[in-house]
Design a protein around this nucleic acid. Structure first.
Lengths: 219, 219
DNA sequence: AGGTGGCGTTCAGGTGGCTGTCAGGTTCAC
DNA sequence: GTGAACCTGACAGCCACCTGAACGCCACCT
């Protein structure tokens, strides 16, 4: 997914861009509104992340101009904690969602995915996978023998794979999803969870690539 | 990606610009240095392709001025086959890479992608190679018959080649990637791995240059 | 308040994929 | 023609991973 990040803070900009890229999206970073205008004139984006305070103008004015031109690209605004009026104004100007600084990068990812799902014509995706019907938003799985329930941790791991079909997700990436920053996991917890997912959902739902990680099975 | 092509030959200029655009980049073509200066004053480019012989001046002087101003935009110079001194001077003046005329457009694309990866901070490129779609960060390869998995060591060797398209990578360089410093490999391990890559990905994915090493196959 | 069962984590024994090697054959520079 | 470089199928051993079972915790139910 093509994502344009309009953010002048170099540190935040880099961190967010790297996170978006790590999630498999294709990010562009514009530190100014002028550059952002050039980009949206020539590129087609699936989502825009918009900071409201830019060095060469107001993010809000950029957003209004975008909507005035008829663009329906989803826009998520980045706002400071105490800027409530600004937030409301942004939503009124046509933003689809907002996230409050400072934010956790994992939360940003989840929010991005949520906005993208809402606006890609697939707001509540059912995913078909090898005889399973999966409803991510409702955490519901329907298999050939009926409803299948996963525990919270099992869902976290399964979603980590579902969000990256075709990609290898390393054990350390899964650990990062499950535990707080830098927590050391001492045993083969991940393997046991994967085994349980296989038991509940079928042995082909997760493929192991030895030494690298796991990958979602092919539908 | 925004690419500025500084080339006075109309035929070559058009062909390269069209190829760059077809690859999803956003090219600008400047047939003179004066025009190029105007463009770089107002636009931010991700890469500059620079011919050294222009009607209104030397490409080398343009490059030196660019670096003197503090620009770190990657620059790839286009040089004639026999202009070795010019090539060296270009690299010394701050060029990041060079490509020798006449060149294959597919090789140019691969080289552009490689330079952009080194300098753009975007570690998650999709690479197309002979019917394969390769996602380096996610260790994902999609071939004509579906998903292809490589082992950890196979990836290391494949990446060593992917990161140097068009270049010969020696066996000792590959050994350095695989093993710790100064480890002596006693047998034909590298040849066996290359054979396995060919088996999984196709026999043209790696070319052997006898006595020198291996090179990535052409897309 | 006490009992229960689901969940998270750990462990141990087993397994099969990966790694490195080798041998026989092919290719090619000289 | 020759010898070095390379190719590739096959094999053995290692260890990353699998999975059944167990235990402690705690939310929930009675």
């Amino acid at each position: 997914m093509r994502i344009l990040l309009i953010e002048d803070d170099p540190g935040l900009g880099s961190a967010v861009r790297d996170e978006i890229a790590a999630e498999g999206h294709v990010p562009d970073l514009a530190p100014t509104l002028a550059y952002a205008r050039d980009l949206v004139a020539t590129m087609s984006y699936d989502l825009i992340l918009l900071d409201l305070g830019l060095p060469d103008g107001r993010g809000l004015d950029f957003l209004k101009a975008l909507r005035a031109k008829g663009s329906v690209t989803p826009v998520m605004i980045l706002t400071a904690h105490d800027r409530i009026t600004e937030r409301i104004e942004g939503l009124n100007a046509g933003a689809d969602d907002y996230i409050v600084k400072p934010f956790d990068l994992a939360e940003l990812t989840a929010r991005i995915n949520a906005v993208a799902r809402r606006y890609s014509g697939n707001p509540n995706p059912l995913i078909s996978l090898g005889g399973l019907e999966i409803d991510l938003a409702a955490h519901a799985i329907h298999g050939p023998d009926g409803q299948i329930d996963l525990s919270q941790r099992e869902w976290i791991i399964f979603e980590a794979l579902l969000q990256r079909p075709g990609q290898i997700v390393s054990k350390s990436q899964i650990e990062d999803q499950l535990y707080s920053f830098d927590a050391e996991v001492e045993s083969n917890t991940i393997e046991v969870y994967v085994s349980r997912l296989r038991k509940k959902l079928g042995k082909d739902v997760v493929h192991t690539i030895r030494g690298l990680g796991y990958r979602l099975g092919t539908p």
